[in-house]
Computed example of a mutant assay.
Amino acid sequence: MTTESGETAPDEASGADDADDTEEYADLGATTADAMAIAETSMDRVRELVPDETLADRIRQKSVHATGDPEFQHLVRFTGERADEPVVAGARAVRAERPIVTDITMVKAGITGRGHDCPVRKAIGNGSELAERTGMTRTAASVLELDREGVYDDAVAVVGNAPTAALALADCIEDGTRPAVVVATPVGFVKAAESRQRLREVAASHGVPAITNVGRRGGSGLAAGLTNELVHVASDARDGTVQLP
């Protein structure tokens, strides 16, 4: 199956939370007592498998929860002086109501609508003329078009599906764009691992905090889940249960 990006289809993202924004924020998007019990039990089991000491551990836990694989915690990579740095940068961007920009619709659909006031937008659908003129993928062209408009500066930049979007974002960073944080988990057998490696190297060279993973696995649901955890950390910082260094 092909996605709207024209690249390898990812796993399905979790459905967007369409609950009223005035409802009390609940971790994992649960709103009913039964849903909260399931969510809490699920995360309790994850915490038995993954350390629970740092903010980076929360991202590792979310990766295990999103994939259902305890080994995935060892595939997550953090770019920065400390593993916590991208988590702190992402939470601060959320608290500052910076845009969350995804590569495709599927990732955007998985971003929770509660716990933040960030505008959430997708890149796909922009840059069609550039794609047609150059022959590059629609997702790469859409990233370049939004970058031309300055959308990615100080934003939470999320790539969950398209390796070429990750490669384009790396080019943008190399040319001077500075997202607040990058979350990149493009999936597939062609260019996926390589695109994440390049993004890590470029982000490290230019001081851009990033959360990525190694290997072929990844996808829209994982990217959305990790981004939602940045929202959860920001919410916890807002109510004083987490201190951001």
Results as ranks from 00 to 15, higher is better:
Glu4Ile: 12
Ser5Thr: 15
Asp11Met: 08
Asp11Pro: 04
Ala13Gly: 14
Gly15Cys: 06
Ala16Leu: 03
Thr22Cys: 05
Glu23Met: 07
Gly29Pro: 15
Ala30Leu: 12
Thr32Ile: 02
Ala33Asn: 10
Ala35Asp: 09
Glu40Ile: 11
Thr41Asp: 15
Ser42Lys: 14
Met43Gln: 15
Leu49Tyr: 07
Leu49Arg: 10
Asp52Thr: 09
Asp52Ser: 14
Glu53Met: 03
Ile59Glu: 11
Val64Ala: 04
His65Glu: 13
Ala66Asp: 13
Asp69Arg: 14
Val76Gly: 12
Thr79Asn: 02
Val87Leu: 15
Val87Trp: 14
Val87His: 14
Val87Gly: 11
Val88Leu: 12
Val88Ile: 13
Ala91Gly: 09
Ala93Tyr: 01
Glu97His: 12
Glu97Trp: 02
Pro99Arg: 13
Val101Thr: 05
Val101Ser: 02
Thr102Phe: 00
Asp103Asn: 04
Ile104Met: 04
Val107Ile: 10
Lys108Ala: 02
Ala109Pro: 00
Gly110Met: 05
Thr112Lys: 09
Asp117Ala: 15
Cys118Pro: 04
Cys118Val: 03
Pro119Ser: 06
Val120Asn: 06
Arg121Phe: 10
Arg121Gln: 15
Lys122Ser: 10
Gly127Ala: 07
Ala131Phe: 09
Glu132Tyr: 06
Glu132Lys: 13
Met136Phe: 11
Ala141Tyr: 04
Ala141Ile: 07
Ser142Lys: 07
Leu146Cys: 11
Arg148Pro: 02
Gly150Ser: 13
Val151Thr: 07
Tyr152Asp: 00
Asp153Leu: 01
Val156Gln: 03
Ala162Lys: 01
Thr164Gln: 08
Ala168Gln: 02
Ile173Cys: 03
Asp175Pro: 05
Thr177Trp: 00
Pro179Asn: 05
Pro179Gly: 02
Val183Cys: 10
Ala184Arg: 04
Thr185Cys: 09
Ala193Arg: 06
Ser195His: 08
Ser195Cys: 01
Arg198Phe: 00
Arg200Met: 04
Ala203Arg: 10
Ser205Gln: 11
Ile211Arg: 13
Asn213Ala: 02
Asn213Leu: 08
Gly221Leu: 08
Gly221Val: 08
Ala223Gly: 04
Gly225Val: 15
Val233Thr: 14
Ala234Arg: 00
Gln243Lys: 11
